[in-house]
Amino acid sequence: MNKVYKFFLGSIFVIVVLLALKFMLIGSGQISDSKTLYLYNWGDYIAPKLISKFEKETGYKVVMETYDSNEAMITKIKQKSTNFDICIPSEYAVEMMRDQGLLEKIDHKKIEGLANIDERFLNLAYDPGNEYSIPYLWGTFGIVYNTKKYSQEDFSSWKNLWDKKFEGEILSFDGARETLGIGLLADGLSLNTTDPQTLIKVRDELIGFMGNVKAILADEIRMYMALEESNVGITFSGDASNAIDANSDLAYTIPKEGSNIWFDNMVIPKTSKNQQAAYAFINFMLRPENAAENADYIWYATPNKKALDSIDPEAREDKTLYPDDEIINKLEVFKALDKESTILYNDLFLDLKISPHAE
């Protein structure tokens, strides 16, 4: 075999190995090619048709991975094992990720359509000036109930949930902040309370509430409420609206003390290797027609005020999804907790879950 031919074969072998290595790394997310967007999102949290539309319009291929909690998402971003270009954290998680140096600052000169977002949902405490995040969807936390058995007056206050008439009736959301929040709201306190003695007192008070809890669940609440397996569910507005859509005997309310208003947001993690694709995605989702299609698919509220003219009229008139300003003014955003407070919340919630009254 002559030297030229040997050199040619050797070069071909090296090229094949390098290409194979490249595609292996791309597949594992350790590097990104210039035509791929790596999206890290909640499960079933974007209209599939929008993914196809984005790919067709931009030429980028979307590779999406899902998570089921902000904490799981943050842990994976910290590991830097996958170069995600976009992820969708909740408001307190944006604050945490910013403080931990996990996010790129948003270059507002590259953003098209930020003016489409309702001014009420910009420049909030978790991200002043929207330096790191762009609102994606929003909602509230409240009570869905069966109108054949109860009226809105039965839920005029969070304190009412301690009434023995609700014994074995309540499906409560599986979350430390949300559960302790019920007790804090009932006492007229902030959802962001961190004083240990106050939280311990609230935990003790919630034992009475837990006596009325049939089960502690997550997304399943909407299904069980729709099937009338229970008459009271404490959950998020989008899930409540889905349950109501399936069962017209259900209604949703927020007690007079107020509740939590949450925001999920588009951010660019430091792991991003394709910021051009990330900005293309943000701008695509800021377009009113796309925001409307996404909101109609997920059935949560869009912060895009220009999209409201295009969303399903039934959704636009749904006070579960889009409450009046009088209600919104009573709502509070969760702030990120320090490590000690996070541990305390989780420990107190665990106490309640394993208490004799908890199922």
Rank of each mutant, 00 (worst) to 15 (best):
N212W: 04
I261L: 11
Y5W: 08
V94R: 12
A20F: 07
V213E: 07
T82D: 08
Y92E: 14
G211Q: 01
N2E: 01
S190K: 15
I46G: 02
G101D: 09
A277I: 15
L331A: 06
K6R: 06
E131T: 05
D347K: 15
M24H: 15
Q152G: 12
M64Q: 13
K22W: 12
A115V: 13
A301Y: 04
A246W: 08
G43I: 13
G59T: 07
K256V: 12
S157G: 03
Q275G: 14
N265E: 15
F173W: 07
L21K: 07
P288Q: 05
D33P: 06
I77E: 07
I134L: 05
A291Y: 02
K256Y: 06
L37R: 08
I261D: 15
A358N: 15
P313A: 12
K164Q: 10
K49V: 13
V63N: 06
K76T: 12
S90H: 07
V144S: 01
L308H: 06
V213H: 02
N329V: 05
K56T: 12
G175N: 02
T147K: 14
E71R: 14
K339R: 09
T75R: 07
G183S: 12
A243T: 09
V202Y: 11
L250S: 10
F281S: 11
A20G: 10
D249Y: 07
V14F: 03
E332N: 07
A125H: 11
I111L: 13
N2I: 00
I182M: 14
I15N: 14
I200W: 12
F236S: 13
L103G: 11
S11A: 08
F8I: 09
M96C: 11
T194Q: 15
S355T: 09
Y40C: 08
S32A: 07
G238C: 11
I182G: 11
D85I: 11
F155L: 03
L185P: 04
L18R: 05
D163M: 00
L180D: 05
F23Q: 07
V232T: 06
D204V: 14
L103V: 09
T302F: 01
K148P: 05
D296Y: 05
D245Q: 12
V202W: 03
D154T: 00
D338Y: 08
M210V: 04
F166T: 04
V144H: 00
G59I: 04
